[in-house]
Design a protein around this nucleic acid. Structure first.
Lengths: 233, 233
DNA sequence: ATTACTACGGATCGAGTAG
DNA sequence: TCTACTCGATCCGTAGTAA
């Protein structure tokens, strides 16, 4: 029943809350009988009553019982719950792109040159500015193993990215780079560097992060790694 | 499990569908394991699996099982379900007014003059045009009995209405009238006529409909009548 | 590693009913 | 009438496990 950890249980209540919102309970105090509500939610009068009791308990509605119905109003907390649902759906339907893409692959040791590029001041400054972290001097190389993952990565190209500008060094030119914020193994923050180099073809993910992930996440070569790439809205 | 009649049961599946949409399954084929999905919906792997089976059964998703996860895409039918939810929420939050207001009162016999006004060609024509029905020559008078109902009726004034224009007869002038489409006792279509006359003060609802409601709904003086007033978006 | 079956137990529901 | 309690029945999520 913890509203902070929405699971199937509180979702049932959210459905009832949603139906109350349909009756106008977000803006006005509405009078509904539990019998009437039960028809709206497709359950029994007793279930409707119980739901109202629980909704009041978790603070999503304010309830006053009268001899011929309940006077109900959704609290600001309840409205916030519905708005959360609403804005998530808006993101899904109004955004051109999916909110995230999750890929999986196998960790392997690269040639160590990721570190070289990442520590170049020209890039490093931009990592801090645009991604919000100072990159650990080294990258994680993930080999994609399935057709699905390779294909999904190729789709990524069309999505909006964080763009790092190219720059000139004393000795050479460094090209522009595209990055995508990402979450590694559901835990660590980082970013996928797209096409920094094409040594490995289109089936390798190169990941930069603020910490040494191999030790932080206890990763070894050959481990499966999950990378959730976040698409900018 | 009937998708056309959303209840607590199908809502559970809609919840899972919504979580799949968050993963981008509306626009792409996504690979998710039932274990991963179970975390997203706050349930067990087995429950996630069952939900996917049921979602496929009712045609909301297309599913391909692979050795390391399911390839899932939400069907157009599934997307339609989510859009229905989305547009309902949009109506709730983006509309200035509640979608409907339900009032209750007691039927009583009026002075019979409702019939006089309703049959005037000047009004009758507009009823047919703007409300879509030819009014039965007679109205239903509902006396509101609780403070809640009287107060709710007074709020109605601020909401957008169907406006019938005034007109001139040989003998006199008929003023403009505001109407609200309504459903009587969850069954019959009709309309509330607002302030056609103020004989009864602010605690009486006058209802016009295409049929003789007293016989149609088996109503007698003193019966409780429920009127759901529909607010224009 | 997956998916998804069976068995079980607790959560939830609806009938009856009290207040 | 209304709400909401108790109490069986049912449902459904979970554990264990097969494929």
């Amino acid at each position: 029943m913890d509203p902070l950890k929405p699971d199937l249980r509180s979702w049932k209540l959210l459905f009832t809350l949603y139906k109350l919102a349909e009756l106008g309970a977000t803006s006005r105090t509405v009078k509904v009988s539990t019998e009437y509500l039960s028809e709206k939610i497709g359950a029994s009068q007793q279930t409707a009553s119980r739901h109202l009791i629980n909704l009041e308990k978790i603070g999503w509605i304010k309830r006053t019982i009268t001899p011929d119905g309940c006077l109900l109003k959704i609290t600001s907390q309840g409205v916030a719950e519905l708005k959360k649902l609403y804005s998530e759906l808006r993101l899904i339907f109004e955004s051109e792109y999916p909110p995230s893409i999750t890929l999986e692959g196998v960790l392997f040791s690269g040639l160590g040159e990721g570190a070289y590029y990442v520590t170049k001041e020209g890039y490093r400054k931009q990592f801090m500015e645009k991604l919000g972290f100072d990159p650990y001097p080294g990258t994680l190389n993930i080999k994609l193993t399935t057709d699905y993952d390779v294909h999904a990565l190729s789709e990524l190209e069309a999505y909006p990215a964080v763009e790092l500008e190219g720059f000139n060094d004393e000795s050479r030119t460094f090209g522009p780079v595209k990055c995508y914020p990402a979450v590694i193994n559901n835990k660590a923050k980082g970013a996928v560097i797209y096409a920094m180099r094409s040594h490995y073809g289109a089936s390798v993910l190169e990941i930069v992060s603020p910490t040494f992930l191999r030790s932080n996440l206890k990763l070894k070569d050959g481990n499966k790694v999950k990378v959730e790439i976040l698409i900018l809205p």
